[in-house]
Every structure is written in structure tokens, then in C-alpha cells.
Nucleic acid binder design. Structure first.
Lengths: 133, 133
DNA sequence: GGCGGATCCGGGTATATACACGCATCAAGA
DNA sequence: TCTTGATGCGTGTATATACCCGGATCCGCC
């Protein structure tokens, strides 16, 4: 029974399920929720180094680097160099901006669905609880 | 701002963090929470086929298969064949049982810590909310 | 006994994610 | 200017996880 009460396992299960909601909604654009979210962060911090971005999204730098490379391959961002030759500087491409425009309402839709299903009160509770972990 | 309110991103973040709690606690045993949980499920269903196990833990069969292979390599489970030659039948080894014995109190510790931090009421709320997603 | 559909698994491929290592670059001090 | 330590990255490796495909096996029906 311990498996049915393990906070970690339940979180993982919920995360997989919720991820699929967003992924399905964004599928027409060819991006998943992780990529979409990363893109949003890049736009907000642009131009930004891998290290700074990783810090912001609280992911390992190497993880962000690999994810960014996928976005680059898709033509959604450009990876260049700053004055500091060590730095990989990320900037969004027009195509990347387009994805953000088109994706926004799709993202909103899923977000709204979830809040409608839970109710605003519980949705808020959930966010609070997740932050307290 | 949308990134700070995205249910999916917040869930992922929380999952990573909480996973690390369990992983650190179980580290002395050389297993992580995913492996520990899978082992628990195998013990409960033993002897069990990959397909049945995957169904139980709500993961893709191929995922469970690969995870099981790791457990086998660690000597915690044995992967054999049933009468149906197609079936991969999983059974726990003595070493696997030992890990479960030793891990139980460690798992309890993390679980208690989390509930202490949140309070029983909120911990319960969290589980309920995760189930509603 | 033999064929076709159903079932079970393994492996290929792709993203998510972390940690450790090694290389290049930078910056500060001798 | 040269040495050193700090910083920024990329890659290797490992687990988590999914989807798809192909091969093996099983089973029911002819």
C-alpha cells in the first residue's frame, strides 16, 4: 500500500499525466510543454547564456544545453557567442516567436481546463502545496 | 509570468525536488525511489509479468522492462520465463527482499518528514489534489 | 495440422534530467 | 607577460519515460 501513498510516486504519476495534457494541446505546433516553457523563458531573458537560463528554470546546465540544442535544430532559437567567447548566447528566431504566439492560447486552454476541473480554490491550493514541498 | 503558474512546470519542479529527497534517503542502499517502488510492487505481485506490472504502475511496458533489467543487474530481482514462453516473469531475490527491509524505515522517514513539514491536513489535501488531476 | 489474429517482449529512437570530467577562456595577481 | 584559479560549455554516462516496430509465441478456428 505504501506505493499508493508515496508522495514521490504520486507526484510522478500526476506529472506524467498533466504533461500529456499540455503536450497534446501543443502537438499541432510540433513542440512539447518543456520546449514551449523553455522558449518562453528565453524570450523573457533574451539574450541569455545557458548558465543564466539554467539558473532561472532550476535545471542542470547540461540539461538546458541539450534542450536548447533541440530548439535550435527546430529553428526556434539561435545559439551564438557573446563577447565572452565561453558563453553560448541564446536568442529567439522569428519562427520561435511565432510558436509562442500560436501556442499561448493553446497553453491557456489547458491551464483553464485544469482550473475548471479543480475549481479556482483548489487550483490555488495545489500551487501553494507544490511550492511548500 | 505564465511559466510561474504553469501547473505542468510546477509539478515537474516539485517532482524533481521530492524525488531527490527520497533518492538521498535511499542512497545508502544503492537504489533510488523509482527502483525501490518498483521493487515493492514486484514483491506484492510476485511472480508477475512485465505487462501486468506495467499496468499496475501505470508505466509503459518498455519502460518497466528497462527498469527491471537494471534491478536484475543489481541482483535484486530475477527475470525468468513462465509457461507462456513469451512472458518475462519477475521474482524478487533474497537480496531484493533485504533492500526492501532496510529501505522501509528510510522511506518512512522521508514520508514522515514531508508530512511533518506540510502538516497532516495539507499532506492529505495534496494527495487528493494530485489524484484529481 | 495449419493459418491468421492477438499477445508479449526486446530494441531503436527521442526527450527529460543529473552528475562528473575535461577543455577553453577569462581575469587577477606576481 | 605568465601562472592560477574561476567560469562556461560540451560530452559521456545513467536513469526515467514514451512510442513504434519487428520477431516470437499462443490460440482458436478451419
Amino acid at each position: 500500500m505504501s506505493n499508493d501513498t508515496c508522495h514521490c510516486i504520486l507526484l510522478r504519476k500526476a506529472t506524467r499525466k498533466v504533461s500529456s495534457y499540455y503536450d497534446e494541446a501543443l502537438a499541432p505546433l510540433g513542440v512539447n510543454i518543456g520546449q514551449f516553457s523553455l522558449l518562453r523563458n528565453i524570450r523573457r531573458m533574451e539574450p541569455v547564456s545557458l548558465t543564466d537560463l539554467a539558473h532561472k528554470v532550476e535545471l542542470d546546465r547540461s540539461t538546458v544545453g541539450r534542450n536548447a540544442k533541440v530548439l535550435e535544430r527546430m529553428g526556434l532559437i539561435a545559439i551564438g557567442h557573446g563577447e565572452d567567447q565561453r558563453e553560448a548566447v541564446l536568442t529567439i528566431t522569428p519562427k520561435g516567436r511565432e510558436i509562442l504566439e500560436k501556442g499561448a492560447p493553446l497553453w491557456d486552454g489547458v491551464q483553464d481546463d485544469i482550473e475548471a476541473r479543480l475549481g479556482h480554490e483548489k487550483a490555488r491550493q495545489l500551487q501553494d502545496l507544490l511550492a511548500e514541498l
